[in-house]
């Protein structure tokens, strides 16, 4: 029974990881930039919502308003990141990744300087702070639902709309897309902005689940990267499968073998890489 609870926790954690990782994987696919600031964006979302709402339980409406505001801020931060990467065009991919890492350190250290390095959390908003089926926290069910909704929206945009078709085309053959008169730079920018907005939104969503603290940025970044290593770069399906798998390892795995949980994550990643070095749904690039 308790394992079932763990598995459900894993679903909630996986849903949160998916919201974070899907932006990261699409930004890589579109811009050829590994955005190592993604974890810092998540952390920024959490800290800004914490500062806005003052760490107290608030009404669902106020909470949703704050979450939207934070997501908009994430979009703005995405714009700053894009502008910062621009001068490095033509230099190696490594330099761009390293730049985002440097900016991530600046952002997270700035936030830790504004608040402090200690633990902070925010209770779920009113209406979502109860429990279902006796004692299971309702908020975790809500996170799973939010993950499903966001996943559905991303999938629908990606597979069923003209904008999504442009994004897919830009991953496959940006040269051809430009030749038929599409502004590829604009498509790229919009993916970057959307991905960064999702990252800060995930930070708000995860507030009641993961405590704010120093080091949170690299922790979630690494989990998101493991999701992508498992699922494959630039694949939405890969992000779903990877996030669910990592979510289970981090909850059921920890419950079954607390001492081995760290190695278990490595084992899963290594096994997938042996099978296909580009991840489950990855293509060789």
């Amino acid at each position: 029974m308790s394992l079932l609870v763990n598995a459900f926790d894993g679903l909630a954690f996986g849903a949160l990881l998916f919201v974070l990782a899907v932006g990261l994987t699409l930004i890589y696919g579109m811009l050829d930039v590994l955005n190592l600031a993604h974890g810092a964006l998540y952390m920024a979302g959490g800290y800004i919502a914490y500062l806005l709402l003052g760490g107290a339980s608030v009404s669902l409406g106020l909470w949703a308003g704050a979450a939207l505001l934070v997501a908009a801020l994430g979009v703005a931060l995405g714009g700053v990141l894009s502008a910062a990467i621009l001068p490095l065009r033509g230099r190696g991919h490594l330099d761009q990744a390293l730049l985002t890492l440097g900016l991530a350190i600046l952002l997270s250290e700035f936030l830790l300087g504004v608040v402090d390095r200690g633990f902070h959390t925010l209770p779920p908003p009113d209406g979502l702070d109860g429990s279902v089926l006796g004692s299971y926290p309702l908020y975790r069910v809500a996170v799973i639902a939010a993950g499903l909704v966001i996943g559905g929206i991303v999938y629908w945009i990606f597979e069923r709309t003209r904008a999504g078709a442009l994004v897919r085309a830009a991953v496959d053959d940006p040269g051809m897309l430009a030749a038929i008169g599409v502004n590829v730079a604009r498509v790229r920018l919009s993916v970057m902005l959307a991905g960064c907005g999702l990252a800060t939104f995930a930070g708000v969503l995860g507030l009641p689940l993961l405590n704010l603290r120093a080091g949170l940025d690299s922790e979630v970044l690494v989990l998101a990267l493991i999701v992508i290593v498992i699922g494959g770069l630039a694949s939405i399906r890969g992000a779903v499968v990877g996030a669910l798998l990592v979510g289970q390892v981090q909850t059921v795995g920890v419950a079954l073998a607390p001492e081995l949980a760290a190695y278990l994550l490595f084992a899963v990643m290594a096994a997938v890489l042996l099978w296909n070095p580009s991840g489950m749904f990855g293509r060789a690039r």
């Binding site: 991919h93 990267l225 290593v229 994550l265 490595f266």
Partner: peptide
């Protein structure tokens, strides 16, 4: 070493963090 470029970067980052956890 079976991975390239960004995958190597991500993999090594993950190994470092897993080592911390261990």
């Amino acid at each position: 070493v079976r991975t390239r470029g960004f995958f190597f970067l991500m993999f090594t980052l993950a190994i470092g963090e897993i080592a911390v956890q261990a």
